[in-house]
Design a protein around this nucleic acid. Sequence first.
RNA 1: GGGCGUUUAGCUCAGUUGGCUAGAGCGCCGCCCUUACAAGGCGGAAGUCGAGGGUUCGAGUCCCCCAACGCCCACCA
Length: 870
Amino acid sequence: MKAVMNPTYNPAEVESRWYPIWENSGSFRPEVNPDGEPYCIVIPPPNVTGVLHMGHALDHAIQDVIIRRKRMQGFAALWLPGMDHAGIATQNVVERELRNEGISRHDIGREAFVGRVWAWKSKSGGSITQQMRKLGDSTDWSRERFTFDEGLSAAVRKVFVTLYDEGLMYRANRIINWCPTDHTALSEIEVEHEDEAGELTYIRYPFTDGDGYITVATTRPETMLGDTGVAVHPDDDRYRAAIGRTVMLPLMNREIPVVGDDEVEPDFGTGAVKVTPAHDPLDFDIGKRHNLESIVVINTKAQITAEGGEFAGMDRFEARAAVQARLAGIDAIEKIEEHRHSVGHCSRCDSVIEPLLSLQWFVDVQPLVGPAIDAVKSGRTRFIPKRWEKNYFHWMENLQDWCVSRQLWWGHRIPAWYCDACGETIVSIEDPTVCACGSNDLRQDEDVLDTWFSSALWPFSTLGWPEETEDLAKFYPTATLVTGFDIIFFWVARMMKMGLHFTDDAPFTDIVIHGMVRDAASGRKMSKSSGNALDPLELIDEYGADSVRLALIQSAAPGHDIPLNTDWVDASRRFGNKLWNAIRFAVEFMDVDGVPVDGGYPAQPGPEGAWVLSRLSDVTTEVDRLLDEYRLSDAYGLLYNFAWSEVFDWYLEMAKTISKDDDRAPIMRQTLGVVLRDVLKLFHPAIPFVTEELWSHLADGPELLVTASWPDIPEYSSPEHVDSLQELVTQIRQFRSQHQISRKIEIPVTIVSGDDPLPDWWLAQIATLADCSPFNGARPGAETGQTRMFAPGVEAFISLEGLIDVDAERPRIQKVIAELDASIGRSRGKLSNPSFRDRAPAEVVAQEEARLAEVEAELAEQNRLLEELG
RNA sequence: GGGCGUUUAGCUCAGUUGGCUAGAGCGCCGCCCUUACAAGGCGGAAGUCGAGGGUUCGAGUCCCCCAACGCCCACCA
């Protein structure tokens, strides 16, 4: 018995019903296609603290379209979900909780704190996994992973220890980027540079021999407290004589040398630079080259240390003003200029980064770079769109060593132990209990690893590596990665390096890069901070997940940003409603249901059926081509127009003209059913909920649409008659509209065909679709008061007498003539050009000639009609 | 200082081997409550494809140059 379908589609009710059915049926597991070729996408793991935003919605919609189609195509398709432990972000959330209780993490200690984070995770973390279900993500939840779970942590240790054994993981004292707020080291890509207004302070450093001074320029005068030298370019004539002399550092009264160094830019400032090896990366290098001492004058809280003398204890910015004032007091400042310069900020908390000399762990990435570049250069892995490859190469070629240690508690603790007795460092997978020297006085390194370290292993660690699991053998290397360009450096490049190094294969074949979702109104990136963010969850509640997905997919041209507003979502919702009603009509009013899941394509579908099936076949072929190239927006734009403008607007209307007791009714129902079935299949990856619901009304058998087969349509050739039918109907409608003729008036139309009499079905279609009474007969005499229409193979005549004011037809014909004239002009121009005839392909020339002949004939006829009208 | 992207209808955007009269959604105008859908149907108006130059029989599409806007990278202290 048929279920009654509501005339208005209600997404909320339908969507909440289907997801559990899919999930519980195991449809998202690759095991549903046990013999299928493996196809795997690993999800970019959202932060455990994350809530679903538009960026996720886009990223997931794309991945879901890809994986759902592959599943329907019979692949053993796996979309592997999971989350990232998100070191700093998560630690901050729990620290905020503690702060509300009036305590800090140091009050409860490391172990208790980590316990609190786990407790938070099980209670509040991972809400995004429920939100992904609302979106319809067909991820295999039985394989869900977490970067901090046991298996992945084992992979992290294995990688760390291996890199250490290979000499690629080392501990060193370097200038690193320090966030004084998050109180941890950061890698250089976690620092965002912004141009800001600042000052360039020119300070005089007197020579110790009393003969003059040298002026240095700095944006950070407070660092002068730690100066241990002044550097000039060795070829700079102004300063050549100064090299080797010493100056007296003001305020500190420290004698420091002037050195010559090629890295100094003579054109900047005074051409002489103060050297603070402990607080500037360039100065650190210069200091090393010239054996200058490193004096730490700023601590991890961004305060001046005891080495800073009278300024000790001051905040760095307070000290900047104080140092300037003191220098001015002793007349050591030559001038202060306004100066815009780039200032580094913590990408997480926006604090100004402090370059600090610090003992940290680093990965020597150079040996990993070559294979990662080669994999892309050779085409083993390709970026889509290709232009991102250039960015990837450029970044790879300019890599610094990766600072991986973080001064946090939430993260993978560095598997290094230090022996207090002998000073030995032990790096091992298993926790050591005793040192080679016999001492068991071992301290594990306090630091944890950069969150991105475990993310870099994601494609293989989630599949079981370093164990040789079945999943790893089957699904690695994975097929496709889908992500935004903003994390190519953070994540994609590192996965490539680690994947190639540890598995000897690139982790993906295709890397699909999409843009950012933007607010269509302002053009800005959607973000909470700018207050222009659309909340996908609110949109899902209001419009349905299908609408949000389709809007994103249709807007997402490959590699471009996506402007989104609710109009797009609303248009998608209307499409869902249209689809709903089209199928409701077929099921309830045309008795189309029990459509077979596979095949069932009619061998003799009749002319309308052959037309729609040939269009379906063409469109499916094109959609497959577009989807294979990841052009989702083009594919679904095409399908959207096909479904609405051709299937619903034309074919469904044609089907209506065939009454239930007509001999052609059974074949029409079969054809309509098969076409609608395949439309549902083609749309399912984009709008899974409404299509699954409609499938349950339309199709026969127990199979869910989610695991149904992708369409494979036999060839059909379309009868030419259908084109002329559509053209003539459109022209009659235009005629009616132009002359404001009510639909209630049936227009008598005499139709003349070139050869055979027109079939009854054709006349019946014309009659219904154009609300006219067609008569297939001889060409009427050349009496006045007729209008004439052309369509391939047929002409139509309408007597204007009694239908319209005959005079009103004149301007219409004149307009038609003007258009035809223009067209003929263009055509003749082309054809009279000898070069065109010589050089254009013969088929293009022939096409042009045929077109001209046709248009000329029509022009002659319209001119004749105009004359008849007088 | 490098690199990349964008510029097409009132708005937001498609347009990938150069080839009929450049498309879509929304908006706008007219008619229609036709029993799938008024969240709809039918019809319509609207674009010198950022400026200039070049290649070509033919350029929104390829090349050069310019302009505006946006993004990324970069240790000018």
